[in-house]
Design a protein around this nucleic acid. Structure first.
Length: 809
DNA sequence: AGCACGCCGACT
DNA sequence: GTCGGCGTGCTC
C-alpha cells in the first residue's frame, strides 16, 4: 500500500482552502514528515508552489491522476503536531485560509518565494533576443514588472512556443555560517609536519602547535586568529598543505543584546516579595505544578511589582522542567522588560517580534524550536513560539488592543494563549492595571481566578492628577495647546532640572489642509479621508493608502492662496512649545521621528541621559517607560478619543490616562500629572483622575448592559468592499438577508452601514455588526457566507469577517 | 493566484 | 477568416 501525502498549498483562495493529495516518490519517503514544507506542482503548465504536509492517507476520492511531490524543503518539520492542530483551529475560528494561518505562526523566512523564469527554448528573432533577454537564455519574469509591452511580447513568444515559463520556489530560510577551522591530521602527523618545516617558518610552526591543541574540535577562524595572532594567510597555507580544513559553522543572528548584560553565571537574584506578590506567585505556582490550565487575572496598580511576580512564576515553571511564554503589547517599545528578563534568565531567553530582521527572527525561532531557549519574550505573534513542554503563559497589559491582529487571520493572542494553555495543561496569567471589561467581568464570575496587587511596592502614593478645563482657558488666552497651569508646571520642572513628558492624544486627529475661502479640505484621491501634512518630507500623505503629494500653494478648488493647515500635530505643538519655553530642550517622538530602525531606542536613551527636558509624543510614549527624573506628565488633549463612534472609546481613554499617569514620579521624587480636557465632567476622565478603576468599571458595565455590548454580548463585524458603492451595498444587503434567515431571533444584526471611512484604496466599504449571546447557527452561517461570496453574484466583492473586533470604525 | 478554455467584437 | 479582449472554472 503506497502512502499518499496531504498537502495544503500556498494558494490563498476559498476554493483551494483544503489539502490536496500527492504521490510520494520513493526517494523522498524518508525525509517526508507531517509538518514539513514541500514543493508541489499545482495547476496547468509548469507551475509549482510551496505547501505543507498536513497528513498521510492511503486513498483518495480524486479521479484524476495524482502528481508527485517535487521536493522536500525541510529536514525537520517546521510545524509540530500541536501547532498544526492550532493552525486548523485558528483557520476555523477566524474564517481564514489554513495556509495563511500556517504562515502567521512561522518566521517570515519560511514563506517561500515563487520565481517565474522565462526560458528561451527556440531560435528567437534578433530583436527580441536582444531587447528581452540581453544575450542570456533566461530571465526572471519579475524583471519585466511595469513593462507591459515587454510582457505582451513575451506572451506572444510563449504562444509561439519560443519561450517557456518555468517555476522555482526559493527557500529563503538559510542559516548564517561563518568559517571555522578543524585539524585534518592527528597529533603525530602534525608533529611530523613540524619537524620537516624550514627553520625560518615561525608562523607555520605556531599554527601547527595550535592545531595540535585543538585536535577533534572546530574553532571559529576569526577567534583563532585573535587568540594566537596567526594570520589568515598562514591558515590558508595550512589548508593547502592539508593540515587543516575550513568548515562552515552555523551562528545565530542574535537581536541587539545589551552589552551590559551579565553572563549566565552572574544572573540577578529574585527580589523580596511583599505579601500580595507572594500570594500571587504561590497561586500561580500551584497551578503550574499541578498542570492546570487555569486562567488568572492579575490586577495590579502601576508600580505594584507585577513583573517580579511574572519572573518568579516563570522561575518555578523552569524549575519544573517546563518552558514559559511572556507576551507584551509592543515589544519594540519596551526594551527594558527584555533586559530585565535577560538579567534574570540569561541566554535561555529568546525574543520574538516583528521588528526583528528576518534572519534574526528565524534564528531566535530555531533556538526555541531546538529547545535552547526556554523563556520567550515577545509581541502578539510570539504566542505561536514553538516551545515544547509549555508550563506558563503570561499576557502583560492584557487589555491592549494590539493583541488582536487587524488583518487576516484576525486572531486574539489571549484566545490563542488559552488554547495552548489547555493543550499543555499550563496556566495563563492575564496581567493589567486596567483590565479589559471582558476579563474583569469573567474574573468576577469566577471564570478566571482573580489576583490583586493593590499596593505599590515603594509604598509611594499614586501621583496627584489635576484636570484642567480647557474651555475657560481658551476664552481667556485664545487658541493654545498649553493651559496656564501646565505651562507653570513645565517652567517649574525646567528650573529644578527635572524632566517632563507631554502626550498628545492624536487618535482621530491630525493636521489637514483647508482653504479659508471656500472651505475645501485636501483629500486623498483613493480614500474618503483628508490628507495629513508631514513637514519632514514636505508632503501631504494619506495614512490609509500611502498616497503622497506636494503641499499645495493654492486651493485646488477656488485657486485662493488662503490655504492653511489646521489641527494639532506633534510638530505644531513642538513649534508652539519652543516659542513659549525657548530654553527647553525637546525630543519629539511620533511615527515620523521613529520610522527608522533603532530611532525609538535612541530617542528614549537620549531622554534617559537627560539630553532633553521634555519628551513630546503620541500614545507610543504612554507605555512602560520608567524614567526616575520625570516628575511631570501632561496630557494635552485627553478627550479627542471620546467622541469616536466606538463603544470602547471611554474604556480606551480611561486606560490611556491611567497609563500615562503611572509615568510620573516612579522613584523617590514626587510626581504630578496634568490632564487638559474639554470634558472635565466625563466619568472616564474623573475616574482616571481619582485612580478609581472599580468605579469606572461599574459605570461602564451598566452602559454596556444598556446598549447590549461586550461583555454582555459578543460581537462580529462583517465588511464588504467593491469599487462601486452600490455593489458593496447590494452585496451587504444580500448577506443581511441570509443572516436574518439563519440566526437566532435574539441575535441582533446592525446595518449594513457605510464605514466611517467609507472609501479606502479606491474601494467602498460597508459593514454589518452582529451582537449575540449564544447562537448555535452563527459559526456555520458565517462559513456559508465566506463560501457564498466566492460565487459570480459577488464578483469583485471582498468580504471579511472579524470576530470580536477591537474597533468599529 | 495563475492558467486554459471559450465566447465575442475588431482587425489584416 | 484570425487576433486578442475578458468571463468562468479548475488546480491533487
Amino acid at each position: 500500500m503506497v502512502e499518499l501525502a496531504q498537502v495544503v498549498v500556498d494558494v490563498p483562495t476559498m476554493q483551494t482552502n483544503r489539502p490536496y493529495t500527492y504521490q510520494v516518490p520513493v526517494l523522498l519517503e524518508q525525509q517526508l514528515q507531517v509538518g514539513t514544507r514541500v514543493v508541489v506542482p499545482f495547476g496547468n503548465g509548469h507551475r509549482q508552489v510551496q505547501g505543507f504536509v498536513v497528513g498521510f492517507t492511503d486513498g483518495t476520492d480524486y479521479q484524476g491522476k495524482l502528481k508527485p511531490i517535487q521536493a522536500v524543503m525541510d529536514l525537520q518539520p517546521v510545524v509540530n503536531r500541536e501547532l498544526l492542530e492550532l493552525s486548523k483551529w485558528l483557520a476555523d475560528q477566524t474564517y481564514s485560509f489554513w495556509i495563511a494561518c500556517l504562515y502567521t505562526m512561522l518566521p517570515n523566512l519560511l514563506k517561500g518565494k515563487a520565481h517565474r523564469i522565462v526560458r528561451v527554448v527556440d531560435e528567437l528573432a534578433e530583436q527580441d533576443y536582444y531587447d528581452l533577454f540581453a544575450g542570456r537564455d533566461f530571465r526572471d519574469y519579475a524583471d519585466f514588472e511595469n513593462q507591459p509591452e515587454a510582457i505582451a511580447r513575451l506572451l506572444k513568444l510563449k504562444r509561439a512556443g519560443k519561450v517557456r515559463f518555468d517555476y522555482q520556489v526559493e527557500n529563503r530560510a538559510k542559516a548564517k555560517t561563518i568559517t571555522g577551522i578543524r585539524p585534518r591530521l592527528d597529533f603525530e602527523a602534525l608533529e611530523d609536519a613540524r619537524t620537516s618545516l624550514h627553520p625560518n617558518a615561525h608562523a607555520q610552526n605556531r599554527l601547527l602547535s595550535y592545531l595540535q591543541s585543538i585536535i577533534g574540535r572546530t574553532v571559529v577562524q576569526k577567534q583563532a586568529e585573535q587568540q594566537t595572532g596567526i594570520s589568515a594567510a598562514t591558515i590558508n597555507q595550512g589548508v593547502k598543505k592539508g593540515w587543516l580544513e575550513k568548515v562552515p559553522v552555523e551562528v545565530y543572528r542574535t537581536p541587539q543584546a545589551d552589552d551590559r548584560l551579565p553572563d549566565d553565571h552572574h544572573l540577578e537574584a529574585p527580589l523580596q516579595l511583599n505579601a500580595d506578590q507572594q500570594r500571587a506567585v504561590d497561586a500561580i505556582g500551584a497551578q503550574v505544578h499541578s498542570r492546570q490550565a487555569t486562567t488568572f487575572l492579575l490586577q495590579g496598580v502601576t508600580g505594584s511589582g507585577k513583573t517580579e511576580v511574572y519572573l518568579q512564576a516563570i522561575a518555578q515553571a523552569l524549575a519544573e522542567g517546563r518552558t514559559a511564554l511572556m507576551l507584551v503589547p509592543e515589544i519594540s517599545l519596551t526594551p527594558q522588560i527584555v533586559n530585565r528578563f535577560r538579567r534574570r534568565f540569561g541566554s535561555q531567553v529568546a525574543v520574538l517580534h516583528s521588528g526583528l530582521a528576518n534572519g534574526e527572527q528565524y534564528d531566535e525561532w530555531r533556538r526555541i524550536e531546538r529547545g535552547e531557549a526556554k523563556v520567550v519574550v515577545g509581541a502578539r505573534s510570539a504566542v505561536f513560539a514553538p516551545l515544547k513542554q509549555l508550563g506558563l503563559i503570561i499576557l502583560d497589559e492584557e487589555h491592549e488592543s494590539s493583541y488582536k491582529q487587524d488583518e487576516a487571520p484576525r486572531y486574539h493572542a489571549r484566545e490563542v494563549a488559552k488554547w495552548r494553555g489547555r493543550y499543555h495543561g499550563a496556566p495563563v496569567v492575564l496581567g493589567s492595571a486596567t483590565p479589559s471589561l471582558e476579563s474583569r467581568a469573567r474574573a468576577l464570575k469566577g471564570r478566571y481566578q482573580f489576583l490583586r496587587l493593590p499596593h505599590r511596592v515603594n509604598r509611594q502614593p499614586l501621583p496627584p492628577i489635576q484636570v484642567v478645563d480647557m474651555r475657560p482657558e481658551i476664552k481667556r488666552r485664545g487658541e493654545s495647546n498649553f493651559s496656564l497651569p501646565l505651562l507653570t508646571a513645565l517652567n517649574d520642572r525646567l528650573s529644578r532640572g527635572e524632566q517632563s513628558i507631554l502626550m498628545l492624544n492624536r487618535r482621530g486627529f491630525s493636521s489637514f489642509m483647508m482653504c479659508r475661502d471656500c472651505g475645501t479640505v485636501l483629500k486623498c484621491p483613493n480614500c474618503d479621508i483628508s490628507l495629513t501634512l508631514h513637514m519632514d518630507t514636505r508632503t501631504m500623505k494619506c495614512h490609509y493608502c500611502g498616497h503622497e503629494e506636494p503641499i499645495p500653494q493654492v486651493c485646488p478648488h477656488c485657486h485662493s492662496r488662503h490655504i492653511r493647515y489646521y489641527g494639532t500635530g506633534t510638530e505644531k505643538v513642538q513649534a508652539e512649545l519652543e516659542q513659549l519655553l525657548p530654553q527647553a530642550r525637546i525630543i519629539r517622538m511620533d511615527v515620523d521621528t521613529t520610522r527608522r530602525k533603532g530611532m525609538h531606542e535612541k530617542l528614549l536613551r537620549q531622554f534617559g541621559d537627560h539630553q532633553a527636558d521634555v519628551l513630546l509624543g503620541t500614545q507610543m510614549i504612554a507605555k512602560g517607560l520608567d524614567f526616575p527624573n520625570v516628575t511631570l506628565v501632561g496630557v494635552l488633549n485627553a478627550d479627542t478619543g471620546l467622541g469616536l463612534p466606538d463603544f470602547r472609546a471611554s474604556e480606551r481613554t480611561f486606560d490611556l490616562l491611567s497609563q500615562v499617569s503611572g509615568r510620573a514620579g516612579r522613584a523617590d521624587k514626587a510626581g504630578q500629572v496634568i490632564i487638559q480636557t474639554f470634558n472635565p465632567d466625563h466619568y472616564a476622565i474623573q475616574d482616571a483622575q481619582h485612580h478609581d478603576y472599580d468605579r469606572f468599571f461599574y459605570q461602564e458595565m451598566s452602559l454596556r448592559r444598556q446598549a447590549s455590548y461586550p461583555p454582555y454580548y459578543y460581537t462580529v463585524r462583517l465588511m464588504a468592499s467593491h469599487p462601486e458603492e452600490q455593489e458593496a451595498a447590494r452585496a451587504m444587503a444580500e448577506i443581511k438577508t441570509l443572516l436574518e434567515q439563519r440566526l437566532a431571533p435574539q441575535t441582533i444584526v446592525l446595518g449594513p452601514t457605510p464605514r466611517a471611512i467609507a472609501r479606502m484604496k479606491r474601494r467602498y466599504y460597508y459593514q454589518i455588526v452582529i451582537k449575540y449571546k449564544q447562537d448555535p447557527a452563527l459559526h456555520k452561517t458565517l462559513q456559508e457566507i465566506m463560501q457564498k461570496t466566492q460565487s459570480r453574484g459577488f464578483k469583485d466583492v471582498q468580504v471579511s469577517i472579524d470576530p470580536d473586533p477591537q474597533y468599529f470604525m
